[in-house]
Design a binder for these strands. Structure first.
Lengths: 339, 339
DNA sequence: ATGAAAGCGCTAACAC
DNA sequence: GTGTTAGCGCTTTCAT
């Protein structure tokens, strides 16, 4: 009854109670080798009886590692990242590692994160999700002096887990082309000033797909904007106000596609009869909205990238890169063109 | 050029380099009082020059606090929790506190979290989001020996920030009743075996609203299921197969409402002409789907609950509770009944 | 297999 | 205002 006098018990106490030295107690508790089974058992029993857990701070100070992994994401309110972090946390906690979360989405937070490095001396490794790093950021991360693994995007500099963005977008483009579309627009989430040589994979697949089909690129059909459904809605408005609107739209993501669908519905334009729309990601709401899209397994990516850091921590650092497959999910928002 | 020899510099080094004692260096660096401005400046300069940051482990060990807040959520892939955690992390990081994330949604994870208490000795406070605790869990949390603050739900035991669920659902019910509906169904996210005396606020508002309008409760119209749009879709199927289907549906959440809308659309039933649907939360996709709903400010809740722990840590522990207002957002999914 | 002892890097009394 | 001195609770050689 009542809380057991929560007066923190130390390892010294446990050692004494078990009739062994602190060294032995430490070995037993940390599951190290060189302890007689019987001794280990006794120590463990005493520890359990007194509800003892080692002080992570002291352990880290003396031992050199923190047992924490820093996870850096640009957002959490977007489904993709929430799902990813949920999967990562699940694996890490199974491994007895803690997740230290850093949200560094908008430019200001991002700058602060990479300049101040709040994770310094606090983590054993860093997991960067969905943030393609600049050279300067890459240099800053190196200061942390810990391993880095990346996920959910294309990163040459670190071991990573990702889909092939270009391949995914190609699957979407192939679908539209197969249906017979030739006047195809893309709404991309990318800075409008980005030069062609550093287009993201999805944009490259768009231009390549057109080129391959012998369709000249009409720059008015290549709309660059923000991510998010509002941006998608506005982009669709621009596309509709064109003298010769597209018969099909490839959205950089499902969320952008949602916005495009909204604009089309409000304009009274029927999908897919008058305009086809295809997204990428297979967001949970895509099924709801009957949006044709390209599926990627986000949860699996999170699990794999988390396992990758665990492996790295274990010292078996293979500088690997895992690329997960994607596939088309045909639904009701795409059909052959009527023009 | 190259990484500055990352050999970790200690406070002793900084002190020596600045020509002061470690104590003074410590005071200067921790922004404590009792240091001559000039001295402080010098220490700070030396520290910056050598790119020094204190060891959190050592500091925690000696000082007694960790600088970390444990944040416990049931999910992250759902918008509500992602948004909440994003807001919390934002405030905490502004305060120089780190966010230790724990996802304890499904029964198994939840049990493990509360039994093993992985956060023990690792955090200065705990923030529980969206998990109404059982008495046993409450007792377990006490073992942590740190302050607890709750958010996103109704919690009597701790200081908390939340909306008034009953009031929010009442706003929805009032709207439906005002429109003239009398055959109103509710799809609730609650275990079907829950006795009436421990209904959640939203369910209470439903039964109370009916009673107030003199409408007898038809238990076949009160559908209890899981959260999530799939559950909502299935519940709507059940409601449609009733001999006398409802003219309006109150969904426990927007996500459930999304599922209901899907079923209605697939059944070719027009909304709101034949059936009205109203949700609660004002999920970003609600606007997209033109769903009438009750708005709550999730981001603000996250910010406030985070500030509450900061206040608590500062010692000004007011056992307060903040209840944020909600309001109806009329959109196109509700209209007067036609039957 | 076990123990003794030396830190890990810092904070907090307590003196001066 | 600044310095001295104990620890904080553990891990880890190095002995035994």
């Amino acid at each position: 009854m009542g809380e057991s006098s929560s007066s923190t018990i130390t390892m010294a106490d446990v050692a004494r109670l078990a009739g062994v030295s602190m060294a032995t107690a430490s070995r037993a508790l940390s599951n190290a080798s060189g302890v007689a089974p019987a001794t280990r058992a006794k120590v463990l029993r005493v520890a359990k009886e007194h509800d003892y857990v080692v002080s992570p701070e002291a352990s880290a100070l003396a031992g050199g590692h923190t047992g924490r992994i820093g996870v850096v994401v640009p957002h959490l309110s977007r489904w993709f990242f929430g799902e990813m972090v949920e999967a990562i946390e699940s694996v890490l906690s199974d491994e007895g590692l803690d997740t230290l979360l850093y949200v560094a989405g908008d430019p200001e937070d991002r700058h602060r994160f990479f300049m101040n490095l709040p994770a310094r001396r606090k983590v054993d490794a860093i997991l960067v999700v969905g943030i393609p790093l600049t050279a300067a950021e890459h240099r800053q991360l190196a200061i942390l002096g810990v391993g880095v693994v990346a996920g959910g995007g294309q990163f040459a500099a670190y071991p990573y887990v990702s889909i092939d963005d270009e391949a995914a977008a190609k699957q979407a483009m192939d679908h539209l082309l197969f249906l017979g579309h030739r006047r195809i627009a893309m709404i991309d989430a990318i800075d409008p000033n980005t030069p062609e040589w550093q287009f993201d994979g999805r944009a490259r697949a768009y231009t390549a797909g057109l080129a391959h089909a012998g369709i000249p690129l009409d720059s008015s059909l290549f709309d660059r904007t923000d991510w998010g459904s509002d941006a998608g809605a506005e982009a669709m408005e621009r596309l509709l106000s064109l003298p010769d609107p597209p018969t099909a739209v490839l959205a950089h993501s499902d969320e952008i596609a949602f916005g495009a669908l909204r604009t089309l519905r409000r304009a009274g334009i029927r999908v897919p009869e008058q305009v086809s729309v295809i997204g990428i990601d297979d967001h949970p709401m895509a099924a709801q909205l009957d949006l044709t899209t390209v599926h990627q397994d986000v949860r699996l990516q999170g699990e794999m990238v988390a396992k990758m850091v665990v492996t790295m921590l274990a010292g078996e650092t293979k500088g690997e890169a895992v690329v997960l497959p994607t596939h088309l999910v045909p639904r009701g928002s795409t059909a052959p063109p009527n023009r």
